[in-house]
Amino acid sequence: MAETATPGVAPRIDPDKESKSKSGLEPGYLVICWNDPVNFMDYVTHVFQMVFGWQRKKAEFHMLQVHELGKSVLTRESMEKAEHYVHQLQKYSLHASMERDE
């Protein structure tokens, strides 16, 4: 896939609309997948592709993190979206949880 071209002119940023500090943002929730040695690597990769719509390369990267490090943070979302993703992952019997991103 071609890379996205960088615009030649930087967009104007209204100082009043600049990003707030992390603490001022809506609390985020991390969706985490934990390692269960019983799951096949191909299966975990497949599930990540299906649940998040990722390309195989990205799905494999996170699968390997789970396998080698014991867990992988898959995404940071609002509470509702994080719950949705955890539910989807658990439907596939993957060990997933959501944790508040402090």
Binding site: D36, V38, N39, Y43, H46, K91, Y92, S93
Partner: peptide, 9 residues
């Protein structure tokens, strides 16, 4: 696949 993995896990 979901059902089979439930049995496996």
């Amino acid at each position: 696949l979901q059902v089979l993995n439930d049995v496996r896990v």
